[in-house]
Design a protein around this nucleic acid. Sequence first.
RNA 1: GUCCCUAUCGUCUAGCCAGGCCCAGGACGCCAGGUUUUCAUCCUGGUAACGGGGGUUCAAAUCCCCCUGGGGACGCCA
Length: 491
Amino acid sequence: MTTPLRVRFAPSPTGPLHIGGARTALYNYLHARSKGGAFVLRIDDTDRERSTAESLAHILEGLRWLGLDWDEGPEKDGPHGPYFQSLRLEGYRDRVDRLLESGKAYRCFCSPEEVQEGRLRMQERVGASMYDRRCRRLEDREIRCRMEEGRPYVVRFAMPESGTIVLKDAIKGEVEIRLDQIDDWVMLRRDGSPLYNLCSALDDADMEITDVIRGEEHLLNTVKQVFLLEALGLPVPRFAHLPLILGKDGKKLSKRMAQTDLLSYRDAGYPAEALVNFFARLGWAPDAETEVFGLEEAIDRFDLKDVGRSGSMLDEEKLEWLVGVWLRRMEPGEILDRAVPWIEKAGLASSSEIAARRAWFEAIVGCYRERVRSLAEVPEKIGFFLAAEIRYDDKAWKNLTKHAEAAEWMEAWLNRLGAVWDSAEALEARSREIAEELGIGFGRLVHPLRAALTGTSAGAGLFDIVFLLGPEETRKRVEAAVHALREGVRP
RNA sequence: GUCCCUAUCGUCUAGCCAGGCCCAGGACGCCAGGUUUUCAUCCUGGUAACGGGGGUUCAAAUCCCCCUGGGGACGCCA
């Protein structure tokens, strides 16, 4: 029997969950779910200075929004907790002591200045900017002496000084790395607090993580962690390093080039499904043609070995297209539910008003389903339905004033419509007849009417709008337009 | 500077591991046309790539080498 697969996503709560992190989380999730493994969420908050509760909340919210539910982690717990590194400090010290005893780690008394000095020297000699290891060869006596003096020290891991290691990576294949380039990295700060590479590797082992999937920028950290685990006789997980997401300029994603904060996409009215679809598709494809798919399908078809090996740029236009696709796939009621916060924020209607006229609201949202580019756009598209008074935009006013007879035509339309308010189709059929009766093209009637009713020159089918506005409101708006035309004043 | 990764249309990618089915497929974008009362949707068509050079082979996008381009890492951050 093989050990059950376990992956983890281990963000540090030092800022909002960004796109890169979200994609890493997604790939971890897909890998776990597709292979029947567990998805663990661990918070790497060893940097006490920069970690904040706000960031943590933001990260959890982002993951939940995407639908990436974790099996173990904050607000969930599990057999391997606690899931915050700040709560796991004791475990790290013991292991460091063991390494110190066996000589696989050593105390370094160098001041930051001395370290820096050594770095410059190594840069020249070896070409790599790293600690020159001067404390590695300190006599035991000297060490004791300095400790008695109370001189502060950090604990460094003693890496091999030469040779190579071959890392097996699920995405990149075998990667050979020269060890003479790798620093004797610091495990414990001066104040005794543990650092990332120590905690991360130890927690992975303690939490029985079998597969570590993280960004490519961690490749060298992986080397350090493998040596640490081996020195301690701990199991070494499998690794997969994801290529980075690049900005439009082809460089590492920066705040300047794009929205990097995941939740800013939610706040812009993008459905989570679109983001999941987009991220999954960035660096991976289920086959040669499938572009639109949800989390379930991705889980069915995902395999780490199919993940691309090169970085990919964030194509915002494709994301926007995906947003439209997902919006169009939704039932009007679904869009309405999700758009309620925006409708309320715009002051168009309260959620109770929406609930009271549910069917009507669903219908008007339905009219604009093919026309909104995000949930945030819903209020501006449907706003005219609820407006007390219509203001005409430039094009609308132009359509109203294009033909001097427009006012007459609209009045005639109003008076001749008759009892056809059962459906948009009936309204349209009768309107076509009226245009014929008036001896004018349909467009001459339709364009001014649209302007009068909506204040714009484009939008949903005119008779769907008329139908949903109802006879009274329609009459009111047409009369207002006729009045404005006669007065020659544009409201 | 050193090390590591990487290389198919402008972008995301399929194909590469197991060479011929690829004068390279899909999608976004863009352009043109159609549908429609308008806009959007939708439909049809077009645009555009194997970074360069050497090999290996009857045959290379696919295998090998070199070059070039791009990215990343070099913290008492994660």
